[in-house]
Design a protein around this nucleic acid. Sequence first.
DNA 1: CAGAAGCGTATTGTATGCATTTTGGAGAAG
DNA 2: CTTCTCCAAAATGCATACAATACGCTTCTG
Lengths: 246, 246
Amino acid sequence: MPQQPPPRASGTRRTEPRGSRAQSIYHALRRAILEQALRPGMKLPEDTIGEQFGVSRTLVREALGRLAVEGLVELKPNKGASVAYPTLDEARDVFEVRRALERQVVLSLAGRLTPAQIERLEAHVRSEDAAQGRDGPESIRLAGELHILLAEMTGNALLERYVQEVSSRCSLILALYGRPHSSECAVSEHRQLIEALRLGDPEKAVAVMDHHLEAVAARAVLAPRTTGDIRELLGPYARKEGFKAS
Amino acid sequence: MPQQPPPRASGTRRTEPRGSRAQSIYHALRRAILEQALRPGMKLPEDTIGEQFGVSRTLVREALGRLAVEGLVELKPNKGASVAYPTLDEARDVFEVRRALERQVVLSLAGRLTPAQIERLEAHVRSEDAAQGRDGPESIRLAGELHILLAEMTGNALLERYVQEVSSRCSLILALYGRPHSSECAVSEHRQLIEALRLGDPEKAVAVMDHHLEAVAARAVLAPRTTGDIRELLGPYARKEGFKAS
DNA sequence: CAGAAGCGTATTGTATGCATTTTGGAGAAG
DNA sequence: CTTCTCCAAAATGCATACAATACGCTTCTG
């Protein structure tokens, strides 16, 4: 097995000296999962991943641990990590919590958005529109990000974190059980939602959000697929984060 | 410094052979924080804690990481961990999210509780009553646990986890900013809540819960205190989890 | 040929060691 | 007496080493 040389003693630095590198691994893996480069159920061996990123198992373990807390990976004792494979029951639970949280988001936001914020939201929806042509995973990610953007605008950090978490898990669930072009209607629903928030009617806004999430949840049953080599799949993500793989 | 002998090669086992020991550290630290043995702002050095539990820094790090995700400890890069010291703004955020979540809990539960579950809830309230005499941290912990019990009964694992998290953080917040005997009214409010759930009127139940949480949140402003040696404070918790400290 | 037992390999669990960063203080300069 | 600088002690960040467990394959037995 080819062995990469040990990290140079001094002088040249890796592109990311600051902040924990575990953070970067975490982000890369997260993205890879949400974009379905890493498919649900796929094994995530620590040393293989570490090899790709050029770090030791220690950091990979840390990243995997955090992803496990968020429900994106499953962590079975003595058996390692794998991309989470949510059951339909779990999916229902996630959507239920998501509804409760996003209800709070729109209640906080209705009638309180600044013009600048509204513009930002509308810009996002436009890019959703643009990405819709390619039915790639990009579209799913963007749809999720609108909700995160909304949560961010509440200024409530905890609410934002939770919405981010359930959004991620919903993306995973849709990847598993959703129909192919499910995002089409989402765009128009997003426009409606923003309009309701702008007008400032909380009742209406909550109703629209509820309807939207209901619609999102109502897309189910599709067959999963398999396989792919972890090395190759992770390469691009490692590079994006500034690592050079072995 | 007295050095404990390395773990014996074979034969006798520590009291907890199964499951990650990091889990135990996590639980012990969590309890210690919630019971205010470890006070907000207090430093949590990895070596010292590991020494107390008789494990290496690796496991302590893992436990601290998880507590950081939950918001019970703060983790500053290159500066280590300390017990979280939430600001009043963060406190407000936590309570807001808590309201949204627990609203969902009572909606799920109203009119759906079995007699056995109701009895279990009432039993819990009785023990709250019993613990109320001693105004110790026990009382705060029990009050929080009722809400966790409720969340557990929804059967929604994610909802349960989130409620557990916000409950913990609320306990910490009350410890920081709450008035001394704040839990007195809580007991009667808990009784009201259970009654409303038993009767099965969702509107009423939500109203009671909302009022209850409002009341809990409305207890603010108290001066924090300081100090204590980490070694001694953690000793009991380590022993409770079956570790023998060095 | 089917199934069970044994063994080697791959992978996880945990400890330890080294480099880097932070921190507190001694000592010199102002 | 204050403050700045520099250094040593301590704590963290990360990699590596070793132990324990799980998995798959061969092999032995019925």
